[in-house]
Design a protein around this nucleic acid. Structure first.
Lengths: 115, 115
DNA sequence: ATTACATTTGCATAGTGGCACAAACGAGAA
DNA sequence: TTCTCGTTTGTGCCACTATGCAAATGTAAT
């Protein structure tokens, strides 16, 4: 309880560093799904996405829903199928904003040998 | 099973999109801890960090270990105390690399109305 | 209407995660 | 050494999560 300056430089970090988004990406299968969709570069149906992980189709469906609710994917129904797409703009902007905030806050990695 | 081009544009996405890092940030208390350390801009002891969340000190200690093992924090023992610092450079670089890879892969948000 | 197919949802189960409390560990001070 | 303080670790509990399977829902074609 000496310094604890509580710098406000990382303005808004609380607003962007949302656990919900990270929780969505904390599962290996969900990450595989995201990579699959990113590499595909086009909307993919649930069945197509499911090829990337060794779990039941229903599980993939649930994972897709979690990613969608986290704002990482977008769903679009077309006929019998549901096509999922990566919300890349949102995702990229969020990651960059977090990086910027962290960088402005801890400029030079808060050199461990400061004092 | 028509196109599924499996573009390799997001080169190395599998290498950087590691669930371990996201898992570490998937808990609200751990995010609070990270923000606390980022705002502090200087090494903080476990007890100092613990002021930011309403859980037992032992729990904070475990959270710090998880963040450290994920490469997000760095620990440095000094006397009786252990001081934690944000590995901001690593973290920032990782976030930017993910953003870059995603962007190069899905340039214009993979416009949902393509075909 | 009936059928076929794609996806979602209900349910049960096994595994994981966060938590508090207590005990152990480690390092400096008396 | 003994004491004290800061941190870590062991343990048990409760909640949540991922999973598979089966049933339900929805949609297009016959």
């Amino acid at each position: 309880m000496n310094k604890l300056i509580e710098n406000d430089c990382c303005s808004g970090l609380e607003g962007i560093l949302l656990p919900k988004m990270f929780k969505a990406l904390s599962d290996p299968n969900r990450v595989s799904i995201l990579i699959r969709l990113a590499e595909c570069c086009a909307p993919c149906s649930v069945s197509e996405v499911a090829e990337c992980c060794p779990v039941d189709l229903s599980v993939v469906s649930r994972h897709l829903a979690i990613l969608r609710e986290a704002g990482i994917l977008e769903a679009q129904k077309r006929g019998k199928e549901v096509y999922y797409t990566v919300c890349s703009r949102t995702l990229v902007n969020t990651l960059r904003r977090i990086a910027d905030a962290l960088e402005s806050c801890c400029p030079v990695d808060a050199d461990p040998e400061v004092n």
